[in-house]
Design a protein around this nucleic acid. Structure first.
Lengths: 137, 137
DNA sequence: CGTACTTGTTGTAGGTTACAACCAATTCCG
DNA sequence: CGGAATTGGTTGTAACCTACAACAAGTACG
C-alpha cells in the first residue's frame, strides 16, 4: 500500500472519529425530549417492528442489561410496548414523537447537504451503507 | 424535492445514526486502555499541538467542564502536558499509546475497506470531510 | 426428567456529561 | 489608573449511560 493510500485511510478514520465524537451532542440539541439512546432504539424498533431487546443489543453493540433498562424506561414512558414473545412495538405516542424527531433531523441534514449534487448524495449514502455493513461483521 | 431525494436523505441519516451509535463500543473494544473520549482528545491535541481545552470543547461540542475533567485526568495519567498559556501537548507516553491505538484502528478500518477501490476510498474521505465541515457550522 | 440455551432483569460500580457557580488572568475603555 | 467585561479553566452537583456478574424464567432437546 502506497503512502497516499495510507493517508486516505487516515483521513477516513479522522473524519469518522470526529463525527462519532460529535453526534450525540448534536442530536441531543435537536430534540432534548428524546435522548440519543432512546431515539436510536425507538428508531430501530420502528423500522424492525417486533424485534426484541436482544436485537437492539446486537445491532448497537451494547450489553443486554443496558438495553433492558432503556427499553423498560421507554415502556414506562409509553413510547414502546412489549407484546408476546418479547416482541417490541412502537406505541402511537412513540411513533408521533419519533417522526417529529426524524423530521427535525432530516431538515438539519438537508441544510448540511446544501450544495451537494444528487450523485454525491447517493454516493455518500451508498458508501456509508457499505461501511456499516462491513463494520457489523 | 422528489420522493427519491428524500429517500436518499433518510438513508444517509439512518447510516450516520447507526454509525454514531456503535462507534464508542467498537472503538472501546479495540483499545480498552484508552477510552473513546480520551482517545479523541489526545488525538486532537496530537494533530493540533498547543491547542487549549477550550478548543476541544468547541470541536467536539462538549461543555468546558467535561473537557476540563478529561484533560485533568489525562494529565494525571501522564498522557498530556499543559504548558504556558494553557497550551496542551501530548507527552512521549501519550504519543506512544496514541500511535498504537491509531494503528490498531487503521488496521481495523483497512479490513472494513477491503474490496473498495482507491476511487471509492478517496470519495468516502472527501464526502465525510465535507459533511463534518458543514456540521461544524 | 434434566441440562443447555435464549432472553431478560437486577445489583453494583464506574464513566460521561451538562449546568451553574466560581476563580484567575487579561483586556477594554471611560 | 481602575473597574467592567471577556476568556479560559475548575469544582459541586446531579443525571444519565454503560458493563459485568449473578440471577430468573422460559424453551429445546436428548
Amino acid at each position: 500500500m502506497s503512502r497516499k493510500d495510507q493517508d486516505v485511510e487516515r483521513q477516513i478514520l479522522h473524519e469518522l472519529t470526529l463525527y462519532g465524537r460529535r453526534v450525540r451532542a448534536v442530536v441531543q440539541r435537536v430534540h432534548p425530549d428524546l435522548s440519543f439512546v432512546a431515539y436510536t432504539m425507538l428508531s430501530h424498533v420502528y423500522d424492525e417492528d417486533g424485534c426484541r431487546a436482544m436485537d437492539l443489543a446486537r445491532v448497537y453493540a451494547l450489553d443486554k442489561s443496558t438495553v433492558s433498562r432503556q427499553v423498560a424506561d421507554m415502556i414506562a414512558r409509553g413510547l414502546l410496548v412489549r407484546g408476546a414473545d418479547h416482541a417490541l412495538h412502537v406505541s402511537r405516542d412513540g411513533a408521533r414523537i419519533l417522526e417529529g424527531a426524524r423530521e427535525q433531523q432530516r431538515e438539519l441534514l438537508a441544510a448540511r447537504l446544501a450544495g451537494w449534487t444528487a450523485a454525491e448524495r447517493r454516493s455518500f449514502a451508498e458508501l456509508l451503507r457499505r461501511y456499516n455493513e462491513a463494520e457489523a461483521e
